[in-house]
Amino acid sequence: MPFDQYTPFRVSTDGAEIHGVKGGSGPPLLLLHGDTQTHTVWHRCAQPLAAHFTVIATDLRGDGASAMLPGAVPSHERPSKRVMAADQIAVMRHFGFERFLVCAHDRGARVAQRMALDYADTVERLMLLDVAAPFGSDAYAQREVATTVAAAANELDLEHDRADIERGNKIGCPLRVLWGAYDVPAHRAEPLAEWRKVARDVSGRALPACHAIPEEAPDALMAEMLSFFEATDS
């Protein structure tokens, strides 16, 4: 079983109970899943990562076994990425981690992006998978923004992004962006150029996958993680 050496946990946050698993040893690494997924999307990476990192893999609030408490968010809305980022900060602080690495996929990447902006001293290095830069000029990014509006209902995520752009607030930690070579983002002309508008230190490339890098290209992803996060065997 991919998570048989991990320990399940539940952590109470402001308005939610976050479920996740913890395993391994070494530098703390938070893993966030994408839309309609759970922490199990990392099943092909779980054991290799545990040899190098103290891994925390969670279900975002409202997904999997992570529950939103009654009254925390109006029933017709999904929580903002700012709220979801605060959940993950609470989880990491619960385990005593004030500074840590983050790898996040799809919708979880939006949460991680917000975390790196709102808690700049907390995210040491950030890896984002299969996500376009906010307010990118390409059609893919515009469709993603439209989806975000429909999901959030109150446009809070967009308001937060606009406010950061207006203030010139950029992601300050090193950022590695990876996307599937066979996915829609691969057809964008300048994916890294778009991210450099909102982050100061950006690198990245395409991997041999479509839109599920953790499951489709786990070996390539693992190599990227070890290189970027500068991990050493424990």
Rank of each mutant, 00 (worst) to 15 (best):
S234P: 15
A186W: 03
N169S: 13
A199N: 03
V91C: 03
R143W: 15
D14P: 11
T7K: 07
T232G: 11
D63S: 12
K170Y: 06
L128S: 12
R78K: 09
P214A: 03
Q5H: 10
A153C: 10
L156C: 02
A199E: 00
N154K: 12
T147P: 13
F9A: 02
A120G: 14
G108H: 00
Q47F: 02
H19Y: 14
F100Y: 08
L175G: 11
V123M: 07
A72K: 00
A139V: 13
D201R: 01
A220K: 06
D201Y: 00
S66H: 10
F95H: 06
P191E: 02
V123C: 15
G15M: 08
D138G: 11
D14Q: 14
A141R: 06
G64V: 10
A150S: 04
E144M: 08
V177N: 00
M92G: 11
V177A: 04
F95N: 12
D35H: 15
P218C: 08
A132Q: 09
G204E: 02
A163K: 10
A86I: 02
R110H: 13
M1L: 09
L226H: 08
E230W: 04
I165P: 01
T40I: 08
E230H: 05
Y140K: 04
M222K: 13
L117D: 12
L158A: 10
